[in-house]
């Protein structure tokens, strides 16, 4: 099965990851001390991923640029609060980015927009993306492979929540499934993905 190859490929990575991690920590230390060059490096390291995720959730390029800028300003402002023991720099930045994009989608959109979006999303599976939307093909392949290991309900729930920014209550409505089931599917779906992607220690 493909799982074996992708898993052994990623098991060679931890050392590299550890080196990269300690480098990122130094970078964050410099950013926290107000070093603008270090911040520019941080921007180069994260911009494609942050913008790509925000765009994926928000769809509108102009608004996505705005939110991406807000995310980086927040990273700058709160750099001293970053704790490496709580997760990687990338994870910290992407979590903030997702949170901001989702907040914006939830608050700014009128009910009408939101309903239209809910209707549109029913034909829109999370992974029918245009090819040029995707920069990191390896990452994409691995994620796609791991999503394939989920049940259909797990995959749909995770995709609607993460890529479309729906609350689990909205996901339950969209999929016409009890709340408790969606809650559980989001968790066990992510746990399965975590194990497939080799996340964690």
């Amino acid at each position: 099965m493909h799982g074996a190859t992708s898993e052994s490929a990623s098991s060679g990575k931890p050392e590299l990851r550890a080196v990269a991690q300690s480098g990122h920590q130094d970078l964050m230390g410099r950013v926290a001390r107000g070093d603008e060059h270090a911040f520019a490096e941080l921007y180069d390291m994260l911009a494609e991923r942050v913008y790509g995720l925000v765009l994926r959730v928000m769809r509108d390029p102009a608004q996505s640029e705005e939110v991406t800028q807000e995310v980086f300003v927040e990273l700058w402002r709160t750099a001293s609060r970053f704790r490496s023991e709580r997760g990687s720099v990338t994870s910290w930045a992407m979590t903030i980015a997702h949170r901001r994009a989702v907040d914006r989608v939830r608050s700014a959109q009128s009910t009408v927009d939101r309903e239209a979006r809910m209707a549109a999303s029913q034909q829109d599976t999370p992974f029918d993306s245009v090819a040029d939307e995707v920069a990191s093909r390896f990452e994409q392949r691995q994620v796609r492979h791991c999503l394939d290991t989920l049940t259909e309900l797990q995959r749909e729930s995770v995709g609607l929540a993460y890529y479309q920014g729906y609350t689990y209550g909205e996901v339950a409505t969209l999929l016409d499934t009890p709340l408790g089931t969606i809650k559980t599917r989001l968790r066990d779906g992510l746990i399965r993905l975590r194990d497939c992607l080799g996340v964690g220690r």
Binding site: G52, S91, Q140
Partner: peptide, 30 residues
Amino acid sequence: SELQETAVRLGSAFATPPPDSLKQNVLASI
């Protein structure tokens, strides 16, 4: 923390270069 890290991997799969002007805007605003 592990599940957030997992979600990040889902998000990273869609990396897209932002417009070049964004970097200057970000650096100016900080």
